[in-house]
C-alpha cells in the first residue's frame, strides 16, 4: 500500500507536467486545427536552451525561463507565419501534420549537430533533494515543476478568459466563421495562439531537463505520450487534457511501481485503444470542435 501511495504522489507530480506539455498541443489544435507534432521537439529545444544557460551562464532553470519563454513565444509566432499560414484552410489539418513533422525533424537535426546525441541533464544543487512527508518521499525538483505547471496553466486559463486576445482565441475555436464576421482577425489570433502554445513548451522543457536525461531524439517519446493524452482528453479540450495527463501520470507511476516500468509505457496505448473503442471523441471532446 505504501508503495502504491508513493507511486500516486509521483504520478500526480509528473502528470502536472504532462498537463502543461499537453496544454500547448491542445491549444494549437483548438485554435487552428493544427496537430503540432513538433511540440515534443519544441520541448526538447527548450530543454537544451535551459541546459545551455545553466552550464554556460550558470542560470538556474527556473530563472532561465524568464528568457526562454518569450523567445519560444516569438519562435511559435514565426513558425505559424512561415509554415502554417500558407496552408489553405480546407486541408490544413492534414497538411499541418506533415509540415510540423518536418519542423520536428528540422529541430532534431539542428540539435544533433550542435549538441551531438549524447544524453545530457541539468543537475542543480537541489536535483536530488527530497522531502520526507509522513514516510513518503517527495522529490523537490518534481514538486517545483508541478507547482510551475499549475501556475502556468492558471495563467493560461486567465489569459483565455480575461483578456481580449484570449476571448478572441476562444471565439475562433468555437466558431471561426462567426468570429470573422464579428471583426476578429483570425490569422492574427492563430499566430498568438501558436505562440502561446510554443511558450508552454519552455517551462515543460525546463522541468524535463531537470528530471530526465535527454538527447535530440527524446521528442519521439514525448510526442507519442502527448498525442495519447490529448486524444484521451478530447482534442481541443484544455480541461480534458489536464485530467487525462494526471490520469496517465498516475497510471504510469503505479504500474511502474507495482508491475514493471516496461509495462508502464504500454498503459498509454492500452488506455488509448480502450477509450477510442468506447468513446471515440475522447473523454471531454465535443464531437468535432474544440472546447477551450
Amino acid at each position: 500500500m505504501h508503495l502504491v501511495v508513493q507511486a500516486v504522489i509521483l504520478g500526480l507530480l509528473t502528470g502536472g507536467v504532462y498537463a502543461l506539455m499537453a496544454s500547448g498541443l491542445t491549444l494549437a489544435f483548438g485554435v487552428m486545427r493544427v496537430i503540432n507534432v513538433a511540440q515534443g521537439a519544441l520541448i526538447i529545444l527548450s530543454a537544451y536552451l535551459t541546459y545551455t544557460l545553466f552550464v554556460h551562464a550558470g542560470l538556474d532553470p527556473f530563472v532561465a525561463l524568464l528568457v526562454i519563454t518569450p523567445g519560444m513565444f516569438v519562435l511559435g509566432m514565426l513558425l505559424q507565419f512561415v509554415f502554417i499560414r500558407p496552408l489553405r484552410s480546407e486541408d490544413r489539418e492534414e497538411l499541418s501534420l506533415l509540415v510540423t513533422w518536418a519542423i520536428a525533424l528540422g529541430i532534431e537535426g539542428v540539435l544533433s549537430v550542435v549538441f551531438k546525441t549524447t544524453y545530457r541533464s541539468v543537475n542543480t544543487g537541489y536535483t536530488n533533494a527530497t522531502w520526507d512527508v509522513g514516510g513518503y518521499t517527495i522529490t523537490q525538483v518534481r514538486f517545483y515543476g508541478f507547482l510551475l505547471s499549475v501556475a502556468i496553466l492558471g495563467l493560461l486559463f486567465l489569459a483565455l478568459t480575461r483578456t481580449r486576445i484570449g476571448r478572441a482565441i476562444r471565439a475562433v475555436v468555437q466558431n471561426p466563421v462567426s468570429a470573422r464576421l464579428l471583426g476578429i482577425e483570425t490569422e492574427r489570433v492563430a499566430a498568438v495562439g501558436f505562440g502561446l502554445s510554443a511558450a508552454t513548451a519552455s517551462a515543460a522543457g525546463a522541468v524535463y531537463a531537470m528530471v530526465y536525461p535527454f538527447n535530440p531524439n527524446s521528442h519521439y517519446d514525448l510526442i507519442s505520450l502527448l498525442l495519447t493524452i490529448i486524444v484521451l482528453g478530447g482534442l481541443g479540450s484544455l480541461g480534458g487534457a489536464i485530467l487525462a495527463a494526471l490520469f496517465m501520470g498516475v497510471a504510469e507511476a503505479v504500474l511502474a511501481a507495482t508491475i514493471s516500468p516496461t509495462w508502464a509505457k504500454l498503459t498509454f496505448f492500452v488506455a488509448l485503444l480502450t477509450l477510442l473503442l468506447i468513446r471515440p471523441q475522447g473523454l471531454f471532446g465535443v464531437k468535432a470542435r474544440g472546447a477551450i
Binding site: 468555437q174 466558431n175 462567426s178
Partner: peptide, 9 residues
C-alpha cells in the same frame, strides 16, 4: 449568417 453563429461554450 444562416448557420448558428453564437459561441456555444
Amino acid at each position: 449568417p444562416q448557420e448558428r453563429s453564437l459561441f456555444p461554450l
